[in-house]
Simulated assay, not measured.
Amino acid sequence: MFRLWAKTFKNNHMLRDTVICDGSSDTRTHKIFHALDEVCSQFDLGRPLWLDSNVREFQKHAKARFYKDSFIEQIEFDYLEIQMLEEDD
């Protein structure tokens, strides 16, 4: 089972979180993008841009933070963090 945890933070306090599960046979990349779309839908956010720093961070640590420069619209928190909890075997 694929599980991705998403959290928003402001002043080092978690404001909101959700876990997205995906049991499909899709690729890892597609599951990540689908999960991020679901997070944005639940949190009523525009989809953030994947900057090179986000890609490197996610590849290295299975975690990425999206700051204000990753969003087109203004956000009411400091950053959105996504973290891989579980991947398919």
Results as ranks from 00 to 15, higher is better:
residue 20 I to Y: 04
residue 7 K to L: 03
residue 75 I to M: 06
residue 61 H to V: 01
residue 25 S to W: 13
residue 56 R to P: 02
residue 35 A to Y: 01
residue 61 H to W: 04
residue 64 A to P: 06
residue 15 L to M: 13
residue 74 Q to D: 11
residue 71 F to V: 05
residue 26 D to K: 07
residue 82 I to G: 01
residue 69 D to P: 04
residue 55 V to F: 14
residue 12 N to H: 10
residue 78 D to S: 08
residue 38 E to H: 03
residue 34 H to L: 08
residue 43 F to I: 00
residue 31 K to T: 00
residue 84 M to T: 14
residue 62 A to R: 10
residue 11 N to P: 00
residue 24 S to P: 09
residue 83 Q to C: 14
residue 30 H to Y: 09
residue 40 C to H: 10
residue 79 Y to P: 01
residue 36 L to C: 06
residue 51 L to V: 10
residue 14 M to Y: 05
residue 26 D to E: 06
residue 43 F to R: 04
residue 47 R to E: 07
residue 60 K to A: 12
residue 37 D to E: 14
residue 17 D to G: 08
residue 22 D to R: 03
residue 30 H to D: 12
residue 69 D to S: 09
residue 63 K to T: 15
residue 60 K to P: 01
residue 8 T to A: 06
residue 26 D to F: 01
residue 30 H to I: 13
residue 22 D to Q: 06
residue 45 L to F: 09
residue 77 F to W: 06
residue 74 Q to S: 13
residue 84 M to N: 07
residue 28 R to Q: 09
residue 46 G to N: 13
residue 20 I to S: 07
residue 83 Q to L: 06
residue 4 L to P: 01
residue 76 E to Y: 13
residue 79 Y to L: 04
residue 47 R to Q: 09
residue 87 E to C: 11
residue 6 A to E: 02
residue 30 H to F: 08
residue 62 A to W: 11
residue 57 E to F: 08
residue 66 F to G: 05
residue 37 D to S: 14
residue 81 E to Y: 09
residue 54 N to Q: 05
residue 56 R to E: 11
residue 11 N to T: 08
residue 65 R to A: 10
residue 82 I to V: 15
residue 11 N to L: 08
residue 70 S to A: 10
residue 62 A to I: 01
residue 88 D to W: 04
residue 25 S to G: 12
residue 89 D to C: 00
residue 64 A to S: 15
residue 79 Y to D: 04
residue 73 E to R: 11
residue 25 S to T: 15
residue 20 I to M: 09
residue 15 L to G: 05
residue 25 S to V: 13
residue 76 E to R: 14
residue 44 D to R: 11
residue 72 I to W: 03
residue 41 S to D: 04
residue 43 F to S: 09
residue 3 R to T: 11
residue 11 N to H: 13
residue 41 S to F: 06
residue 44 D to C: 12
residue 28 R to N: 06
residue 3 R to K: 15
residue 51 L to Q: 15
residue 54 N to L: 06
residue 11 N to S: 09
residue 72 I to K: 11
residue 79 Y to S: 07
residue 28 R to A: 04
residue 2 F to Y: 09
residue 63 K to M: 11
residue 39 V to C: 11
residue 7 K to C: 13
residue 76 E to K: 13
residue 46 G to Q: 05
residue 3 R to F: 05
residue 30 H to E: 06
residue 13 H to E: 14
residue 84 M to C: 12
residue 76 E to C: 07
residue 29 T to E: 12
residue 2 F to R: 04
residue 24 S to Q: 06
residue 12 N to K: 14
residue 55 V to E: 10
residue 21 C to H: 06
residue 75 I to A: 02
residue 77 F to R: 03
residue 27 T to F: 04
residue 55 V to M: 14
residue 7 K to D: 02
residue 82 I to M: 00
residue 84 M to P: 01
residue 19 V to T: 15
residue 78 D to L: 13
residue 52 D to T: 12
residue 11 N to I: 07
residue 81 E to D: 00
residue 4 L to W: 01
residue 50 W to M: 08
residue 19 V to G: 04
residue 36 L to E: 03
residue 17 D to L: 00
residue 64 A to F: 05
residue 31 K to E: 03
residue 3 R to G: 01
residue 60 K to E: 12
residue 29 T to H: 07
residue 88 D to A: 12
